[in-house]
Design a protein around this nucleic acid. Structure first.
Length: 569
RNA sequence: UGGGGCGUGGUGCAACGGCAGCACACCAGACUUUGGAUCUGUGGAUCUUGGUUCGAGUCCAGGCGCCCCAGCCA
């Protein structure tokens, strides 16, 4: 039973495929790999793939390598290597070792020479346009839906049957930088009429006179994905190369190379990638958001980058629970953001200390409370966790309550404070609203009430009930804070389509409140400390917090059934 | 339209030829010193047509729909 519960973290189709390989002797151990390209920061979409690799290794007693796919130095850099490592570690993923595709450049080059010697690879001098035309496909930019006839068979390159020695020599000179970029490529010799376009003599190496962040200026050719990834898997003895569905079509090529080389037969298995509504998964576009200043950086709390979510106050456990709860299949799917938020709430509900904080303050004066008096009331830190203990809350004559918690004329089903109504001040007293003060513009600027001294702590000795409990802070004791509220960054469910970012960003995605009053115990909150502000939401102290000037991010709001009632009208 | 992949409530995931179930969302109610949390309940799904079978979401055949591929990106 226990074994069964553990395996539920993996989808059955992957679990069974791996088990089958172990049973039938294809492999006698399990090794997987995380293959990030170091050209951007990790986002929630990567987490799914990471976790599948991690869990697969764990559940079969195997190991995991973190291998950076650094085959395109024009896009990649060492700063991303460090960021990816630290983000993955924060998530809780552990790996046996870190490797780089570039570690294998020499061996890969030897393998290419072997293919040439086997007559299975050649140097092609065609231009890119010629190659594209001779592949028998439509011109670049054509949509498949616009294609009327079947693919034409490709045409063999005039260089396809170059002698082995000439190929070897040209490849060596390409490597050494003797030719300009774009002048030649090394291609596998497979079948120019193959219905799978990837098998129409795919490019293995292209010339790039670019400095590489690890190999320096030693190489002037760099391998393509198809001529690197599978070979690296094989060289590392990776048993299962788990990737997203877009690579299904690559599998025949993946296997062709390994078979021709007689190399270790890594098995590629695919699953669907994660789509999350309102989340941007395209690295290129996230970069645009950052560079254009639409968001404040890669760790902007509105982004679903790992750093963004972390800064916002989401824990690794919440992220992992979310990914696990959505499951994995080969289906194309769109998970609703609400499901992610539910996981975040569920996690924070268990761990976050409760605090009182007033975001949009309205002064409340308790007229019959002695002017100079202050008292301390006991408050529970977390009703979900008695071990979290209690704290003292200072109370006095002048308080702040939430503007939303007062209405001069209450709508139906509104139970909070309005003239004549009695409510409970959380952990304090029952108070009855007696009046209000307006400014010249007609805005309510102050509310008055009387308290019942017999209800200290919030219970009435006569057993009478109130329908609402509201939060408050003592005006003279409260600390001032900035609070940042977030909404969806985009107004459309799928922000990855289209290129006009400006037109789809939500202008209200960030609301900064700089006049918030919090209970004094929040004064020494440290960045990343997490709290529930009662009745309001979950909040996390931000990196921008300074001594005496706390800044909080709203991670996610509480479920708000009043907002629902009100919203329906 | 060449090749490949995928179709189960609104969304995501289960059901390995045997009562279609779970979570999120939604709706109604109970409880409540957070309109939180918790609990209970309602509604709602097997793309379609045919076949095999005592029995089909599951197997077979056809159709339909959606997604991926024509980078010297990964």
């Amino acid at each position: 039973m226990e074994a069964n519960e553990k395996t539920t973290r993996l989808p059955r189709f992957i679990h069974e495929a791996v088990k089958e390989d172990l049973t039938n002797g294809r492999f006698n151990y399990v090794r997987t790999r995380l293959p990030p390209e170091p050209n951007g920061y990790l986002h929630i979409g990567h987490v799914k793939a990471f976790l599948i690799d991690y869990f697969t290794a764990q559940e079969f007693g195997g190991e995991l390598y973190l291998r950076f796919d650094d085959t395109n130095p024009s896009k990649e850099g060492t700063e991303f290597v460090e960021a990816i490592e630290s983000d993955a570690a924060w998530l809780g993923i552990r790996w046996a070792k870190v490797t780089f595709a570039s570690d294998y450049f020499d061996l890969l080059y030897e393998w290419a020479q072997r293919l040439i010697q086997q007559g299975l690879a050649y140097v092609d001098d065609q231009t890119q346009e010629e190659m594209s035309a001779s592949r028998g496909t439509m011109p670049k930019g054509t949509k498949w839906s616009e294609t009327e006839s079947a693919l034409r068979p490709g045409v063999d390159s005039p260089w396809r049957n170059r002698p082995v020695e000439e190929n070897l020599d040209l490849l060596e000179r390409m490597k050494n930088g003797e030719f300009p970029e774009g002048s030649r490529v090394l291609r596998a010799k497979i079948d120019m009429a193959h219905p799978n376009i990837l098998l129409r003599d795919p490019v293995m190496y292209r010339i790039m006179h670019v400095h590489h962040h690890r190999t320096g200026d030693r190489w002037h050719i760099y391998p393509m994905y198809d001529w690197s990834h599978g070979q690296n898997d094989s060289m590392e003895g990776v048993t299962h190369s788990l990737c997203s569905n877009e690579y299904i079509i690559h599998r025949p090529l993946y296997e062709w190379f390994l078979q021709q080389l007689g190399a270790f037969p890594t098995r590629q298995i695919e699953f669907s990638r994660l789509n999350l509504t309102y989340a941007m998964m395209s690295k290129r576009k996230v970069r645009k958001l950052v560079e254009s200043g639409i968001v404040r950086g890669w760790d902007d709390p509105r982004l679903t980058t790992l750093r963004g979510m972390r800064r916002r106050g989401v824990t690794p456990e919440a992220i992992i629970n979310f990914i696990t709860s959505t499951g994995e299949t080969k289906n194309d799917s769109w998970v609703e953001m609400a499901q992610f938020e539910a996981c975040v709430r569920d996690d924070l509900n268990k761990r976050a200390l409760r605090r009182l904080g007033v975001l949009k303050p309205l002064k409340l004066v308790i007229d019959n409370y002695p002017e100079a008096q202050t008292e301390e009331l006991e408050a529970v830190n977390n009703p979900e966790d008695p071990a979290a203990g209690t704290r003292k809350l200072p109370f006095s004559r002048e308080l702040y309550i939430e503007q939303d918690d007062f209405r001069e004329t209450p709508p139906p089903k509104y139970f909070r404070m309005y003239p004549g109504n009695e409510v409970r001040l959380r952990y304090a007293y029952l108070v009855t609203c007696t009046g209000l003060v307006k400014d010249e513009a007609g805005n309510v600027v102050e509310v008055h009430a009387t308290y019942d001294p017999a209800t200290r702590g919030g219970d009435a000795p006569d057993g009478r009930k109130v329908k609402s409990t509201i939060h408050w802070v003592s005006a003279q004791h409260a600390i001032k804070a900035e609070v940042r509220l977030y909404e969806q960054l985009f107004t459309v469910e799928n922000p990855d389509v289209g290129d006009d970012l400006q037109s789809i960003v939500n202008p209200h995605s960030l609301e900064v409140l700089d006049n918030c009053y919090l209970e004094p115990s929040l004064g020494d909150a440290q960045p990343s400390d997490k709290f529930q502000f009662e009745r309001t939401g979950y909040f996390c102290a931000d990196l921008d917090t300074q001594p005496g000037k706390p800044v909080f991010n709203r991670t996610v709001g509480l479920r708000d059934s009043w907002a629902k009632i009100e919203g329906k009208k």
